[in-house]
Design a protein around this nucleic acid. Structure first.
Length: 132
RNA sequence: AAGUCAAGUUGGGCAAUUGCUACAAAAGGUUAGUAUUCUUGAGUAGAGGAAAGUCCGAACUCCAGAGAACGCGGUGCCGGGUAACACCCGGGGACCGGUGACGCAAGUUACCGGUUACGGAAAGUGCCACAGAAAAUGAACCGCCCCGGUUUUCGGGGUAAGGGUGAAAAGGCAGGGUAAGAGCCUACCGCUUCUAUAGUAAUGUAGGAGGUCCUUUUAAUAAGGAGUAUUCGACAUGAGAAUAUCAGGGCAAACCACACCGGGAGCAAGGUCAAGCAGGAGGAUUACCGGCAUGUGCCGGUUCAAAAUUGUUCGUUUUGUAUGCCUCCGGGUAGACCGCUUAAGUCUUUCAGUAAUGAAAGAUUGAGAUAAAUAAUUGCCGUCCCGUUUUCGGGAUACAGAAUUCGGCUUAUAGACUUGGCAAUCAG
RNA sequence: GGCGCAUUCGUCUAGCGGUUUAGGACACCGCCCUCUCAAGGCGGAGAUCACGGGUUCGAAUCCCGUAUGCGCUA
C-alpha cells in the first residue's frame, strides 16, 4: 500500500456505516472549532485499518466551495495519515472517521487554502493517535 | 486614440512533484489451466457558457388506454424554420427615442434604432371604489332657451355647445342652422363596409358608398310608415318575416365563447442477477426385535455413527437435537450489474435561402462518477490594482462544478477581442 | 436527482382588485384597579405586505422573473 495514497477501499461508502458512525460515534473538535471529526473504534483483528469520509453540509456554501472543502480535507488526511494508521493496525482495531467543517462557511471564508485547514486537522489526528 | 449603444466570439497559459476516477499494455501470486480472483501498474482521457434555476419543449422508460366527448391546463397579429416548443428568423401594426426636411408654433413627414402576453368587448355574464346629476336600461347639478304664474322666487318643458367631478362623460373640429342647441345639415378627419391593386397572409395604397325620405306635432333626435342592404322564406315571378341603416366607454394577466395543442408519471423511470430473513414443496433422520399406543411418538435390548478416556485396539461412558438439517421453488431486501453515453453529435468546405435553417461531401469520437473522480503545492509568464517609478515588492485574477440525454428560455458573470451605428473632441 | 407548496407587525395568523400605507390574538409600553404581583379594564406604538418588473384608472391580492424557507419521493 502506498504511504500517501488514498483509494476507494479506505473510504466509508455505504449508508449503513455512516448511520452507525453518526449514532454511536464520538466527536472531536479542532482548537479553533473550525473542523470537527466523528469517530468510532471497533475490534476487528482480521482486517484492521482506518476508513475515512469527508462530509460538508449543504448550508456551508455553494457546490464549488463544498467540493473544494472536501478536497482540502482529503488532501490533508492523505498527507498525514501515517500519524495514526500504524498504531491502529498494531492494536488490531478498525477506526471509522468522518471529517466535517464546523464553523467554516463560504460567507466568511470564500477563498480557503490548505495552510488554513492543515493545522486544525493535525491536532485532531494527534488526539486520536493518543488513544492507541 | 479615447466615449457610448447594439450584435457576436472568448472565458488565462506552460512546467515539476505528490495524488484521485475511468479504460488498460504488461508483470507477479493463486490454479490442472492464457476460466476466475488478488496485488502492482507504463500509457491515454478527465466540467461549463451558463454544468445553475428547473420555466418550457422533446427523446427514452413504465402505467393506463378501442375511439370520441366532457372536464382541466396551455398557446393566441401574419408567414416561415424545427423532432417539438411559451423558442428562433422574416414581415406587419402600435408605442417610444434620435437625426434631417417643412412649419411662427402645435405638429406633419422621411430615414435609423429600440420595446411589444399584439386574436374576440357587436354570443352571454360580471366589475368599474371615492367623487359626480349621470359609469351604460343612453345621463339635466349649474348654465342656456321657451311657456305659465309671478316679478324675492317657484313650477312645467326643451337642450349634451359651456362649467364642474373623475382614470374614463356618450366621435373630433369648422361653418350653416336654431327659441336655445344638437350628425339636425354640409366640408375635412376618424369609424364601418365594398371594389381594385401589391402581397402566400397579416396588412398597405387608391377609389366608392354609408350621418336616408315622407307624415304627425311649434320644432324635432320621439312615434308611425316608405326606401335601401343582409338573412330567412318562396322560386317562373311576386307577396311576406326578422335585423340593420355612424357608436356599441374600459377591463378578457375577470368568468368566458372561438381556433389550435396536450393521456399520466418520471432514470430515485425501468430492467437483469441475487446473500440473509420469512413463505411453500419434497427428502433424510441406521436396521431389527419386544411392549405401550396408533395423529404420531415413547421405553428397553442388539447393531451403527460421533466424541471423550488410552501410546494403539478392545472395553467403558456420553450423545444421536425435530421450534433442527439437506435439496428444490416462486416472489424479492441488502448488494452488484444494465440503462450510461455514437448522438436531432462535433468540425471543415460547397450549394439553396433576406434570415432562422436545410441539403450534399469529407474528417473525427472529445468525462461517465454514484457519501459521488476531474485535485493539492510550487515556479515562470499573461491581465488588472497599489507603492516605488531602470528595477523591484505586495495583492487580486469573474460567475461558477457534469449526475439519463438533447433543443430553447431565464438568471449570475472580472476581463479580453471582432464588427457596425452615433456623436463630433484631441493629435497629425 | 425529480416533484410540489409557502413567504403579511417581535411571534402566530385574517384579508372580494377600491371606503386598507392593512384587521385580530399573544408579546411590548403607559395609565387605572390592588398593600404588592398576576388576572382584568382603557389607551398607545409596532408592517416599504420577501425583492424586481408588468397588466389595470387603481395590486398584499392577477401575471412573469429572482431570493429564502418547507414538504413529498428509493
Amino acid at each position: 500500500m502506498k504511504s500517501q495514497g488514498l483509494s476507494k477501499k479506505e473510504r466509508i461508502k455505504s449508508k449503513k456505516e455512516f448511520q452507525r458512525v453518526y449514532s454511536e460515534g464520538n466527536t472531536l473538535f479542532s482548537p479553533r472549532n473550525s473542523i470537527k471529526a466523528i469517530y468510532l473504534i471497533v475490534d476487528d483483528k482480521s482486517n484492521p485499518g482506518i476508513r475515512v469520509a469527508f462530509a460538508v453540509h449543504k448550508k456551508a456554501g455553494k457546490a464549488v466551495w463544498r467540493n473544494r472543502m472536501k478536497r482540502l480535507l482529503r488532501e490533508t488526511y492523505r498527507l498525514n495519515k501515517n500519524l495514526v494508521l500504524p498504531k491502529v493496525v498494531d492494536s488490531g482495531k478498525r477506526l471509522f472517521l468522518v471529517f466535517s467543517p464546523n464553523s467554516l462557511n463560504e460567507k466568511d471564508n470564500k477563498k480557503i487554502h490548505l495552510n488554513e485547514v492543515m493545522p486544525e486537522v493535525l491536532s485532531i489526528l494527534n488526539k486520536l493517535a493518543a488513544q492507541f
